[in-house]
Design a protein around this nucleic acid. Structure first.
Lengths: 191, 191
DNA sequence: GTTTATACTTACCTGCAAGTAAGGAAGGAA
DNA sequence: TTCCTTCCTTACTTGCAGGTAAGTATAAAC
């Protein structure tokens, strides 16, 4: 029996809620009740809601690092890394996280503190840089065949995934799979 | 001086707020205060919030019909119709509507009534059907050159626009323009 | 001239959200 | 043994959210 600390339990629950319902879609009660604690306990660990969100962004970074380190390592087949990204996305949806952090924060973007905004931006930048490298290397290694700058291509792939996750609400993973097929096709991969 | 009815003013304001901040991002107060009316006046016209949202979805249909009828008419150059879609998207963002209806509803999708869900679905279906026709006709007419089924291609373009709008928060239209360039490239159009 | 419908306002209610202040249990350090 | 720290709970407060009920002004209908 691994008894996780209350603080970790709060983060876990809030993280799950954020990626299910978005920033304004959950309250302290939604966290405290299922954990069997009181609202004030959350305030003890995170004085206000922005502190909580901040912690969730950090948590997101950690989770992403852990679950993407395998396929995100540079080198090797670019195709393998791309498939890792697809698989990761599918896993997230299967784990009840239909929207990603960027999507969860986008709607209420105005409310956010500068700290959170910049953390979000830097996450996006990291993702873009990584995928840019992947598609460029893939083109050099003759795995991919596409026109235009690699960076633009990378961003468009991330946008497609982002948009597809939104559109997929209510539909299943079949929808996402189909979008991935289109990305493969547009990258000149014969599926 | 065209004096619009209070009801129309409410719809206009709420529509604007919905596409700026999402479903849970605005309250009755945000509508009534700038219009100089009382909350109860909103309740008079729309008994509860779901009625309001319902009306906004209808409004969205109307707005879309009006502003897309020119380029959405079937026939003629497919390229022209595609560019119309791009221009429409840019206009929406310029008019302070950074997120589209589908995006605004996606985050809080669970809360929605079946009526709203199905209205949303049918809007998506319409859009997909239209764009499918456009890309397929474009391919037949040798304007476009791409692999794979037209429907899948159409959905992926809509997904890219959707995702790009989300990612563009905080950035400007330059970001969107760049995504459109990638779509053109992937459609085999020389920009 | 009275009735009736429309389009509101005033004045309220309930409920929940975020947040705070004070207190208590439990354990380690002096 | 007392003190201090950590991690909570109890018991509030404030404020706004959505919503309702009753009253009022205006104009058209009869």
């Amino acid at each position: 029996m691994t008894s996780t600390s209350t603080k970790d339990q709060i983060i876990d629950k809030a993280f799950q809620l954020l990626l299910q319902r978005g920033l304004n879609g959950f309250s302290y009660r939604d966290i405290s009740e299922p954990l069997g604690i009181k609202n004030a306990a959350i305030h003890y660990h995170f004085p206000n809601k922005l502190d909580l969100i901040s912690a969730l962004i950090d948590e997101n970074h950690q989770v992403l690092k852990r679950s993407t380190s395998e396929f995100m390592a540079y080198g090797g087949e670019a195709r393998h890394q791309l498939e890792g990204l697809f698989q990761f996305t599918l896993n997230q949806c299967d784990c009840g996280r239909p929207i990603c952090m960027v999507g969860a924060l986008a709607v209420d973007y105005n409310d956010l503190s500068d700290k959170i905004k910049s953390a979000n931006e830097s996450f996006m930048t990291d993702s873009i840089n990584w995928l840019t490298k992947v598609v460029e290397v893939g083109r050099e290694q003759d795995e991919f065949n596409f026109e235009g700058p690699g960076r633009r291509k990378a961003i468009s792939i991330l946008a497609i995934i982002q948009g597809a996750r939104q559109m997929a609400r209510g539909h299943g993973n079949v929808f996402l799979e189909s979008m991935f097929d289109q990305v493969r096709t547009d990258l000149g991969i014969k599926v």
